[in-house]
Write a protein that binds this DNA or RNA. Structure first.
Length: 482
DNA sequence: TAGTGGTTTTG
DNA sequence: AAAACCACT
């Protein structure tokens, strides 16, 4: 075989899949078109940057496991995946200059919307273009890319429902296309290339995400299974944490084993007509995918969000309580509110939390403990296997009433009412708060009525009182703003 | 035609 | 209360 003289490099980040991967697809097509040309997929682990972004250890481990799995999957398609270990994003530049010397002719990748990531990509782009290397970015993180869904006056939507209406009308105008799995003709010898470049191989993770399978086919089967068997009941079951009513695909969307395009494509295939029915399981699940895009669009349009500025400027003046003791109790699931404690322990024990519980615990931290939503935002990121800036920040600001969407009511959840409504039998609470598992019947939602069961913590705050304090805090900043 | 004001909608 | 739409200019 003749010597490889040109490399088409695919930089994988949060698009760790071989199906429907635009970058991989185009790089392979280009390489197959040329003589002595090969595709090289590249992943660079950057634990220092990950840590600075509070990326949960379980999410880091999932990334590493997925990359190793993908290495095998891609090799069978004649595509080598070089998995490297660096420290932070600034080290990526050195790797690319070495690749440029080794015959790299083009770079392919999927765009990302966070500030540091955009800076990183901009710098690498400039560096490579100076060396006459073609750089191709594909904006496929969303089905409808930011900038394509605007109000009639050309503004970014700040309210979900009109955004969704617009988004859906676009969906009806077009067919969602997914790229096929690429196949190259020449396989690069990665071991040799790594030696030649003098770069460090990616380290293994600690395996803490082992409960989450990483084989691409297995994940696609999960998606298909969900769309065939569960999505029909999604609207009826999704709010009950004791029931497996949600897709549990968020972690795979976050690291891109699945694309949103694949999700909607599969949903249309399996649930077709139901999608046209309002409140059908299929259309409600689609709404959740649209929420994901809504927050990504918002993030790109309001870059201050990445600096943790509140969307509603006047709420920056709120003086949140800096109480480490109360915060710790919330983190550890020792608030004395069973549904809150069960939820936080689910997060701590499994790296994942049911969406209904994310709203309940967020509301509790902000509206019952008056603690800065940013503390909660950061804690969630540091624990969640599916933590992504846009959705996490959007969700927290929604719960904190500092974000988009100006509803005329004030959003304070009553944790006991929420518990009664969404964990009616207390099954979920008993699973995660064993010290009150023996409490019979509806008392499980509020076991303090007679006296707090031994081994369980008393309530750290009185909800009705806390509610009044919070309302006053918001009234204060609203009136000083005029 | 882009700006306005009045009306409807809002996770 | 604020956003978005819509009709009118």
């Amino acid at each position: 075989m003749s010597k490889i003289t040109s490399l088409h490099v695919v930089w994988l980040r949060n698009d760790l899949r071989s199906y429907d991967n635009a970058a991989l697809h185009h790089a392979t097509a280009a390489a197959n078109d040329e003589q002595n040309s090969a595709v090289l997929a590249l992943f660079i682990a950057t634990p220092k940057t990950w840590q600075r972004h509070d990326m949960a250890p379980i999410r880091q481990d999932l990334l590493r496991r997925r990359v190793l799995q993908m290495q095998t999957e891609l090799a069978s398609r004649n595509i080598a995946l070089m998995a490297l270990e660096a420290s932070s994003y600034s080290d990526c530049a050195k790797i690319f200059s070495k690749l440029a010397d080794a015959g790299m002719v083009a770079l392919y990748g999927q765009t990302e919307y966070e500030l540091r990531e955009q800076q990183r990509d901009k710098e690498i782009t400039q560096q490579l273009q100076r060396a006459d290397i073609t750089v191709n970015w594909y904006d496929r993180l969303c089905i409808m890319p930011p900038g394509t869904i605007l109000t009639q006056s050309g503004d970014t939507y700040k309210v979900f429902t009109p955004f969704k209406r617009n988004w859906l009308s676009r969906l009806h105008e077009q067919e969602i296309r997914c790229y096929s799995k690429p196949k190259a003709s020449v396989l690069v010898d990665v071991k040799q290339l790594m030696q030649q470049l003098g770069v460090k191989e990616m380290a293994d993770g600690d395996g803490c995400s082992a409960d989450w399978p990483v084989a691409e086919q297995q994940v696609l089967d999960k998606l298909r299974g969900f769309c065939q068997q569960q999505v029909a009941d999604y609207n009826d079951k999704r709010d009950f944490p004791a029931v497996k009513g949600t897709s549990r695909l968020s972690a795979y969307l976050a690291c891109g084993v699945l694309s949103a395009q694949q999700c909607v494509n599969r949903l249309q295939m399996e649930a077709g007509p139901a999608l046209e029915r309002e409140k059908s399981g299929a259309s409600v699940w689609l709404s959740e995918l649209i929420w994901r895009e809504f927050y990504k669009h918002i993030l790109l349009a309001y870059p201050d969000l990445i600096k943790h500025k509140p969307f509603q400027a006047e709420t920056a003046a709120i003086r949140w309580r800096q109480n480490k003791t109360l915060f710790k109790a919330w983190c550890e699931g020792n608030t004395g509110y069973p549904i809150v404690d069960a939820a936080m322990r689910q997060l701590n024990d499994t790296g994942w939390m049911h969406n209904r519980l994310r709203m309940i615990t967020a509301s509790f931290l902000v509206k019952d403990l008056q603690i800065d939503w940013r503390w909660g935002e950061q804690y969630f990121m540091s624990k969640l296997i599916d933590g992504e800036f846009a959705a996490n920040n959007g969700g927290w600001q929604w719960a904190a009433s500092t974000g988009t969407d100006a509803a005329p009511y004030f959003r304070i959840f009553n944790p006991v009412t929420q518990s009664e409504r969404f964990d009616p039998e207390g099954d979920f609470i008993r699973r995660f708060v064993p010290e009150i598992a023996h409490v019979q019947g509806k008392e499980i939602h509020w076991p303090h009525k007679k006296s707090t069961p031994s081994g369980y913590c008393p309530a750290i705050v009185d909800h009705d009182e806390a509610r009044k304090i919070t309302l006053a805090m918001f009234t204060e900043v609203k009136k000083s703003d005029g």
